[in-house]
Amino acid sequence: MKGLATIYRRELAGLFVAPLAWILLSISYAMTGWLFVTILKDTGGDIIASVRFSSGESLPYWAFMIFLPPLLTMRMISEESRNGLLEFLLTSPVSDGAVVLGKFLAAWTFMALFWSSNLIYAAALHGLGAPPDWPPVLGGFLGAVLVSGLFCSIGMLSSSLTSTPILAAFGAFIGNVLVLLLPHLAGLFDATWLHEEVESVDVMSHFHRTFLVGLLDTKVLVFFSAWTGFFLFMASRAVEAKRWR
């Protein structure tokens, strides 16, 4: 895809040259670090419980997961659309897909950097003479990155549908919450087929049954990749639609 690397570099620079991203990272790291150490103390030094807690078995983890991607992606397309910068971009010799994908990759890289804190905690434990079971730790990191990718792609779609960043963030947040709460919402209806269908797209159970317990399942890898691709495709279609207006 022509221009993909350029757009990716530009977006990444836009994120990390501004102090906001660093402040966001700093606050998030402080919170996850405090939670990690607290759980480690409360469980009498149980490494597996602490790593699991910070890798997906806790409410704060999912709170970060649904809040951060919308904040990162809200301005990526919507603000450029509002400022008229998107028109310049779309008239340049790059495809819509490259525009969406480049911006998505930048947001995804930020999220990967954010979740790498778990690897740093595990490395710290290793350095202190209590090595964790590394493969599940790496699996948990991979899972976190894949789930973040899904939520970033939802954020990209939301950002491409509106010219107001706050609205984009709100839409993405609602989308993320809906994706997570889908099984609970389906539980309100007394239809077995609905429960079974929703179970097959349940993000949390896919994550909990595989990455969190140290299992790598190609079905789950494809599940997250395919749905991320779906939302990115829809986002690129939405960007293309802006050409018609």
Partner: peptide, 13 residues
């Protein structure tokens, strides 16, 4: 652990 997780990483950022 406190030094690395609660102070080190956030201050670095």
């Amino acid at each position: 652990l406190n030094l690395i997780a609660i102070w080190g990483l956030p201050l670095l950022c």
